[in-house]
């Protein structure tokens, strides 16, 4: 915060670059969502489609967390203390999707 106070409100160009980055992020998110929409109706359902969706979702998450939530510009220790716990989520996904498959095999096969 401290360094921010040096930028004074009299200067109309203050933060112009930041605002440009914000709108750039907005367009990226908008275009990615539009492309997702297109893929939903053009690509046949299957592993390829799901993979594309997951990759695009992660890219969108990267822009929201990195730019909008400003995490990209924080200190390294803060970035890692937020990202590392997400590993547990990856484990949860793996464990429970395998479990779901096992239930399916037990009930319907």
């Amino acid at each position: 915060m401290a360094e921010i106070h040096h930028i004074h409100n009299q200067d109309p160009n203050a933060g112009a670059e930041q605002r440009k980055a914000i709108w750039k992020t907005f367009w990226i998110l908008l275009i990615l969502t539009a492309v997702e929409f297109l893929i939903a109706f053009t690509v046949p359902h299957g592993i390829l489609k799901v993979t594309i969706f997951i990759v695009m979702t992660i890219v969108k998450a990267f822009y929201i967390v990195g730019e909008f939530m400003h995490l990209k510009h924080e200190t390294k220790s803060l970035i890692w203390s937020i990202l590392v716990p997400v590993v547990f989520v990856a484990w949860l996904i793996l464990a429970l999707l395998l479990e779901g498959n096992a239930i399916f095999d037990a009930v319907f096969d």
Binding site: P85, F88, V89, L92, I93, L96, L97, E99, G100, N101, I103, F104, V107
Partner: peptide, 16 residues
């Protein structure tokens, strides 16, 4: 974590 748990539970139900 809370939202992940909900979404992953959805995935489990869907896979089963």
């Amino acid at each position: 974590f809370t939202f992940s748990a909900l979404l992953v539970a959805y995935g489990t139900a869907r896979f089963s």
